[in-house]
Computed example of a mutant assay.
Amino acid sequence: MYFFLANLSIMDMTSSTTALHRILTNFISGDKSISPLNCFMQMYFFSSLTSDELLILSAMSHDRYMAICNPLQYHTVMNRRVCVVLAISCWLVGFIQVSPLVVTLFHYTCYRSNKINHFFCDMMPLVKLPCDDISFLDLFIFVNGILLATFPFLFTFVPYLFIITSILKIQTNIGRRKAFCTCSSHLMVIILLYGTLVCQYLRPISVDDLDSNKLFSLFNTAAVPMLNPLIYSLKNKRCYVGFEAEFHSELMKLVY
């Protein structure tokens, strides 16, 4: 679990740095310009890291499934080699699947404007700029969005159906609490991230909604990476204290 949490922390820090460092630079210098190359690089790294985060959360769901539903086989199946292969695969797939979009968008020669109504170079504002035919971009974003949204979503939430079923079958309150605390923090992070992405990318955007879209983008780039370590640390601490108190209570009943 902590191996995947380390990867998630690196992704959070890198994605926040990719988007927010330019905002701080613009705020200090007053210069809001950015070169086309830097703009496309910013979009590429931020989109790739967002995809990586969805994939690593899917890997963490499988890890939690093995820990709760098959605890006797956990150390055999989720060994160090398997965890490393899963992490490397998540990193590679996230960076590879965004590359065709960035290369295609970078090679357009005509743009409607050199300004975007956003605080960093996000994918959705940039794909609206080319004045040439963007049917390929629309098709690629549609197909890529289905693949990126459907498979990580299924691989993330389907294991939790089995996890919840296994938790309900546990006879003791201590066992149910321990199992629930093992996966509750991860489930909260998943709901927070997917909820933000749905509000940001999977709703119709009009001119009047651009400000709200920027608000969701700011929440995704700044608030979510900041909340993730708080959720994992404070939630685990509270669950551990509650589990320890209940354990001592049950132990005292057995003693007396």
Rank of each mutant, 00 (worst) to 15 (best):
C121F: 01
C121V: 02
C121H: 02
C121W: 01
C121Q: 08
D122M: 03
D122N: 07
D122F: 11
D122T: 12
D122L: 00
D122Y: 04
M123V: 12
M123P: 04
M123F: 06
M123Y: 08
M123I: 13
M123A: 13
M124K: 09
P125Y: 00
P125S: 02
P125D: 08
P125E: 06
L126T: 00
L126D: 00
L126H: 00
L126P: 11
V127I: 11
V127T: 03
K128F: 06
L129S: 03
L129K: 08
L129E: 10
L129A: 01
L129R: 08
P130N: 04
P130G: 03
C131P: 04
C131S: 09
D132Y: 02
D132T: 14
D132P: 12
D133Q: 06
D133E: 04
D133W: 01
D133T: 01
I134Y: 04
I134W: 03
I134H: 05
I134T: 11
I134M: 11
I134L: 02
S135V: 02
S135T: 02
F136W: 05
F136D: 02
F136M: 06
F136Y: 00
F136R: 00
F136S: 01
L137Y: 06
L137P: 07
L137N: 01
L137F: 03
L137W: 06
D138T: 11
D138W: 05
D138Y: 12
D138V: 10
D138F: 12
L139A: 15
L139D: 15
L139Q: 08
L139Y: 10
L139T: 08
F140E: 05
I141L: 14
I141K: 07
I141C: 09
I141S: 05
F142D: 09
F142M: 13
F142Q: 13
V143A: 15
V143C: 08
N144T: 09
G145K: 05
G145I: 07
G145F: 07
G145Y: 02
G145H: 02
G145P: 02
I146L: 15
I146V: 12
L147I: 14
L148N: 08
L148G: 15
L148H: 04
L148K: 05
A149Y: 13
A149P: 11
A149E: 09
T150K: 10
T150N: 04
T150S: 14
T150C: 14
T150D: 03
T150F: 12
T150G: 08
T150W: 15
T150M: 08
F151G: 13
F151K: 10
F151S: 08
F151T: 13
F151N: 09
P152F: 10
P152I: 03
P152W: 06
F153G: 13
F153C: 09
F153I: 09
F153N: 05
F153E: 07
F153R: 05
L154M: 14
L154E: 13
L154A: 15
L154W: 15
L154F: 13
L154K: 10
F155E: 15
F155G: 11
F155R: 07
F155M: 10
T156G: 14
T156D: 10
F157H: 09
F157P: 09
F157E: 13
F157S: 10
V158M: 14
V158H: 09
P159S: 07
P159N: 04
P159C: 12
P159Y: 13
Y160V: 04
L161S: 04
L161M: 03
L161W: 05
L161N: 08
F162V: 05
